[in-house]
């Protein structure tokens, strides 16, 4: 479970170009659900995702995560409460949370060009210092799962849009995070590939993952297995559906 309490995020505060991207959001997201943040461009969806995924800190307000979602993070103590407030944690701990708790699928895929599919997928495991043999086996399993087994040694710039996105999903799953965050995942895909993506998302839900997607694509928010759709407009929660 993820809880946001009166979360605000502003940019360029105190300057003439001050901009409030998220203004006072209260929200609770349940585990093992697919939640879609729906809204037009500039509505604050991506900022909200960044805040939930510990990639940025809110200007004010609090974000708490269920302790069981944080895995075996080094900073947790036995006596901690069932929920951990993450907004005030030092950067080092936020990095650890990003690494273990969240898997990110970016709009532009954000794969690193010039290196192979396998190397891209292994990147999130490097800071963990796990044995190469072990992480490579895991990477190969994921590549097989996403029908990319024959593309292991290919450079990412040689991939089609669908392949690149599957690589991005495999990378997001490398550290087996409980929460997957996807920002406009179908923006660069045609209808067929978007459908395939949503099938993968459904499979991940079946494996017990919590999925949060920001999208204004009807193929995403109208998919039958989406549990919750939250409308976002002008940095505020507008309404809900399912």
């Amino acid at each position: 479970m993820i809880r946001l309490s009166n979360v605000r995020k502003g940019f360029n505060l105190g300057r003439p170009n001050e901009f409030i991207a998220v203004g006072g959001v209260d929200l609770t997201l349940e585990g093992n659900r697919i939640t879609v943040l729906k809204g037009p461009s500039g509505s604050g969806k991506t900022t909200l995702l960044s805040l939930i995924g510990c990639m940025a800190r809110p200007t004010s307000g609090r974000i708490s995560l269920l302790r069981s979602l944080l895995g075996h993070n080094g900073f947790l103590k036995d006596g901690d409460m069932p929920e951990v407030e993450v907004t005030s944690l030092p950067e080092r701990f936020l990095t650890e949370i990003r690494r273990r708790t969240f898997g990110f699928i970016f709009q532009q895929f954000n794969l690193i060009k010039g290196i192979t599919v396998l190397e891209n997928i292994l990147l999130p495991t490097y800071p963990l210092g796990k044995k190469h043999r072990v992480v490579r086996k895991r990477a190969e399993e994921l590549l097989d799962m996403f029908a990319l087994g024959d593309r292991t040694a290919a450079r990412v710039e040689w991939l089609s849009g669908g392949e690149a996105q599957r690589v991005a999903i495999a990378r997001a799953l490398m550290n087996d995070p409980p929460i997957i965050i996807a920002d406009e995942p179908t923006a660069h895909l045609d209808s067929k590939l978007s459908g395939e993506f949503m099938d993968i998302i459904a499979r991940l839900k079946g494996q017990g993952k919590t999925i949060i997607i920001a999208s204004h694509d009807p193929l995403v928010f109208a998919a039958p297995f989406v549990d919750r759709v939250i409308a976002v407009r002008d940095g505020m929660i507008g309404g809900e559906g399912a």
Partner: peptide, 19 residues
């Protein structure tokens, strides 16, 4: 810009500043 983007990606997927 390419190098800066790459550092951003690495940070986002869990690399620490020290890494």
């Amino acid at each position: 810009a390419e190098e800066r983007r790459e550092i951003g990606i690495l940070k986002a997927i869990g690399w620490e500043t020290s890494d």
